Simulated scan of single mutants.
Amino acid sequence: MTFTPKRAQESLIQMTELVLPNDTNTFGNLMGGRLMYWMDIAAALATMKHCSAPVVTASVDNISFETPIKLGNVVHIEAKVTRAFTTSMEVHLRVWGEDPVQQYRYKSNEAFMTFVALDPNGKSRPVPQVIPDTEEEKVLYDGAMRRRQLRLVLGGKMKPGDAEELKALFI
């Protein structure tokens, strides 16, 4: 099965949430688990938009929380597919907080997630390739193979010696 490749920009999802009391910890900051939940939804929407099929989360790379998002602030999540492999897609997410009273935005974090497309029987299925257009999309696209190999090595699905893209960084 072959698909027409799609531009990275076509998968862009922008999600906005308001941080309410039920979303916060005892310090009045957005709970990390709630943010990861919202990020997972945004990434799923971006990958479904790209492949026009149901998807499941396959992996979540390191998520570092740079700046806490406070109660009453707005969360902005941007998700875009950076590269597609055979049945999986890498998604880059950026998160900003916004103080609506003081009218300023601040970076909270960013992460990469991987999703797999499913056929009607719940088995993985092929996905369209990604066409990067902007310089930033090209940089993310080029780095995706190294990030994929690192995920596979860390997950025990690839031997370190077989990770050619990673070896090229050190040799």
Results as ranks from 00 to 15, higher is better:
residue 88 S to G: 06
residue 143 G to D: 11
residue 85 F to N: 05
residue 128 P to L: 01
residue 37 Y to M: 15
residue 117 A to P: 04
residue 171 I to Q: 13
residue 30 L to E: 00
residue 31 M to N: 10
residue 70 K to L: 08
residue 53 A to I: 01
residue 101 V to S: 02
residue 135 E to H: 12
residue 147 R to Q: 09
residue 5 P to F: 03
residue 71 L to Q: 02
residue 140 L to S: 00
residue 35 L to Q: 02
residue 37 Y to G: 15
residue 113 M to Q: 13
residue 158 M to G: 09
residue 78 E to I: 04
residue 28 G to T: 08
residue 49 K to M: 05
residue 135 E to P: 10
residue 30 L to N: 00
residue 27 F to D: 09
residue 130 V to W: 05
residue 9 Q to S: 14
residue 149 Q to E: 07
residue 149 Q to N: 00
residue 80 K to T: 12
residue 113 M to K: 11
residue 114 T to W: 10
residue 98 E to K: 08
residue 123 K to E: 15
residue 95 V to G: 03
residue 104 Y to P: 05
residue 113 M to A: 14
residue 15 M to T: 11
residue 96 W to Q: 11
residue 101 V to P: 00
residue 10 E to S: 09
residue 3 F to P: 04
residue 134 T to Q: 06
residue 132 P to S: 07
residue 120 P to H: 13
residue 1 M to F: 04
residue 134 T to W: 04
residue 35 L to I: 01
residue 73 N to Y: 11
residue 105 R to W: 09
residue 8 A to E: 06
residue 117 A to H: 01
residue 61 D to T: 06
residue 38 W to L: 01
residue 40 D to P: 02
residue 133 D to H: 03
residue 120 P to R: 14
residue 60 V to D: 02
residue 76 H to T: 02
residue 79 A to Q: 13
residue 43 A to P: 12
residue 105 R to D: 10
residue 42 A to K: 01
residue 129 Q to L: 13
residue 7 R to H: 13
residue 10 E to D: 12
residue 13 I to H: 03
residue 120 P to M: 13
residue 101 V to Y: 01
residue 115 F to Y: 15
residue 171 I to P: 12
residue 106 Y to A: 06
residue 118 L to P: 00
residue 139 V to P: 06
residue 31 M to Y: 08
residue 45 L to V: 15
residue 136 E to D: 09
residue 66 E to C: 10
residue 9 Q to Y: 10
residue 104 Y to K: 11
residue 150 L to Q: 10
residue 166 L to T: 04
residue 112 F to W: 09
residue 37 Y to H: 15
residue 44 A to I: 01
residue 50 H to P: 03
residue 56 V to G: 03
residue 121 N to W: 10
residue 117 A to G: 05
